[in-house]
Design a protein around this nucleic acid. Structure first.
Lengths: 208, 208
DNA sequence: AACTGTGAAGTTTTTCACAGCC
DNA sequence: GGCTGTGAAAAACTTCACAGTT
């Protein structure tokens, strides 16, 4: 099997790129054109060597003696992360969490457009979340397949999450952001990220 | 300086304990009394050696030949993570995210009780989120100090987050769950965890 | 027979430190 | 002088493999 760049870049480094991008956008808004790795590091609480190494996996974006052009770095990182385009995303589950996600405006500016919201509860189906009308999970497969959706966010109760995951994966979804408090079993090629605020809180209470 | 157990346990291992606890609760609900590390590993997508090593930092909870008693392990992990008590938590920011957090019922069962919600916007102050009345950020300091709050969740816009962090830390807060898309600069003794769904999404699009 | 707890080996990730460039 | 890009060293983390226990 040919070894591509994707196999060689540590996943943990990839995970930091969005943080760099986020910081750079802010820095750019503050009118800064050029930034050195140690300055960027200060913004992020990360060492400068780490930043240089992470960026060097993707090519020499910097200028010695000067630093990195903020605009170029934003452009390059956006391309690397494939967020120089807009991804259509579906949300499954229109409870508290699903509703908050669907109403949150921040996604669009950063490369994601929430196009569909699904729920199985008759009371919720047909209601509006912003511009979007909540659809029945009965039409989940039809919609996902027709529009070739690759990314979904799961915001259903723990007991239903695995089954929803199986269904969306069968439709070609290969990236899942899971808010349900449970580990999902998926094929290797499917990426999953987890958000559970209580897990975050509990890993802090240990130190209190 | 004396080297305590807290200095010796890898932070990354501590971060996994809440996942173990979460899985164990589910396993217990399904009526299972005893579980082996490799079974627990299957539930979590983690190797059995990892689990045994993580648990062994805190003492021998298991029985050779048998596995771990689910009830005992839950009890022990809850104690280690200090979630065998209920923590009072304040939420700052009553926008979309703050509202979703405040309404989410899942916190209470897992050791956290949201007691206060603050916002600076006059339209929101005085409205109810479940049982809680949104208070003005003007009384933030008074409330936090009086009740000796140690944990807050920050759900304000990026531009206000650092200033809110500074204020709550001055009141004795030492654990922050930050939903604002920005790194917070805090003293060493303060723990911060970050949740930004877009960061999670962007680290998956790299692979698509 | 089955499983834990754990040193030791192996792997990954971070940090150092410096040559090379602006 | 200041900064990047990068091998090499150090540290952190994971996996192996097996002695010891039930």
């Amino acid at each position: 099997m040919p070894e591509t760049i994707k196999d060689v870049v540590p996943q943990i480094a990839v995970g930091r790129l969005p943080l760099y991008l986020r910081a750079l956008r802010r820095i750019q808004q503050q009118g800064c054109d050029v930034i050195a790795s140690h300055e960027l590091g200060k913004h992020l609480g990360i060492g400068s060597a780490q930043i240089r190494k992470d960026l060097s996996y993707f090519g020499g974006f910097g200028k010695q003696g000067t630093g990195y052009s903020v605009a170029i770095l934003i452009e390059q990182l956006s391309a690397v992360l494939a967020v120089d385009q807009t991804w259509s995303v579906a949300v499954i589950g229109a409870g508290n969490i699903g509703t908050a996600i669907s109403k949150y405006e921040g996604f669009t500016q950063r490369g994601f457009h929430i196009c569909w919201v699904f729920d199985s509860h008759p009371d919720v189906i047909g209601t509006r979340m912003g511009d979007i009308v909540v659809q029945s999970t009965e039409v989940l497969e039809r919609t996902l397949c027709r529009h070739k959706i690759q990314i979904v966010m799961i915001a259903v109760p723990a007991g239903e999450a695995q089954q929803i995951a199986d269904r969306v994966i069968a439709c070609g979804v290969c990236a899942i952001l899971n808010y349900a408090p449970i580990h999902l079993h998926v094929p290797d090629y499917v990426k999953v990220q987890y958000i559970d605020p209580i897990v975050h809180l509990q890993s802090m209470t240990y130190y209190l």
